[in-house]
Simulated scan of single mutants.
Amino acid sequence: MTSSSWADFQAAEPAFADTVRQRFQQYKHHVLATVRKDGSPRVTGLEVEFRLGEPFLGMMPNSRKALDLRRDPRFAVHANPGPDAEMADGDVRISGRAVEVTDPAVLAAFIDEVKPPEPFHLFRVELTEVVRIGLEGGDTLLIQTWRPGRPLRSFRRGNDDGSLTDAP
């Protein structure tokens, strides 16, 4: 599956990228899904830091999620829906591959900005899919999806028969 940097996503769909970034920045803690050694999913909490122009996933050394990503870099991060879970700003998820950061200059710049507890693992994000689902008009879902090399797609799903229709 083709992956893309955050910069490429932002260049392709700047308004959508801003909406997704803002949604992740509303709350500190989010939910990460990784793949365990046996192939089953592991779901854990983490913080997503938008620094140096892209999202980073930081975690404690040798944590299960870090070891999962080192073995199999596939992940999905679901933005915290908020305290009331009404998701007034939509439900957002990014998926892709997590690439461990080993460049000393990038690590130093991240440490300088974030001041994380050390030691830690740091992963940058290569996107394979970005999804936002929100309510439109109270009872219609607006589903937006972006994948590398494709334009943003929007669908609507009403309460009637549950079918999807392309949104203009």
Rank of each mutant, 00 (worst) to 15 (best):
G162W: 08
N80W: 11
A109E: 12
A105N: 09
D112C: 01
G96L: 00
A12D: 15
R153L: 15
F50Q: 12
P81T: 12
M1Q: 11
G96M: 00
V130R: 13
I111D: 15
L32I: 14
P14C: 04
P83I: 07
Y27K: 06
E86K: 13
L152F: 11
E126H: 02
A109H: 09
H78K: 04
L142A: 12
H78E: 11
F155L: 15
T44I: 07
V43R: 07
E118T: 11
P55F: 07
D38A: 00
R42F: 02
D112P: 01
M87R: 15
T102S: 15
P14T: 03
I94C: 08
F24D: 08
D84M: 04
E129K: 14
D8S: 14
G58P: 00
A66K: 05
L164N: 10
P104F: 10
D89S: 12
A66F: 04
V31P: 03
G149S: 09
P41N: 03
S4K: 08
R36N: 13
D89I: 01
V92N: 06
L46R: 08
P116I: 00
D72T: 09
A85C: 08
E129D: 12
V35N: 03
A79R: 11
R21D: 09
A79P: 12
M60G: 00
A85W: 10
G58C: 01
E13H: 11
F24P: 10
F155H: 15
A11L: 05
P168A: 14
P148A: 04
A85Q: 14
E49R: 04
A109T: 05
P117R: 05
I111Y: 07
P73I: 05
W6I: 07
R42G: 08
L69Y: 06
L69G: 03
V131A: 14
R51C: 10
D91V: 04
H29K: 07
A12V: 10
V35M: 02
R147S: 08
E86W: 09
L69E: 10
S163C: 08
R42S: 12
P73K: 01
E136Q: 02
A12N: 12
A17I: 07
L127I: 11
E54D: 09
F56R: 03
R156E: 14
A17P: 12
W6T: 04
I111A: 13
L32D: 11
G96E: 06
N159H: 06
E54W: 09
T145D: 07
A109R: 15
E136N: 00
S40L: 09
S5L: 09
A11I: 00
V114M: 03
P151N: 06
Q144H: 09
K115W: 02
G58N: 00
F123N: 06
F50C: 10
D38T: 00
L32N: 11
D89C: 07
V92C: 15
Q10C: 13
A108I: 07
T19E: 15
R156V: 15
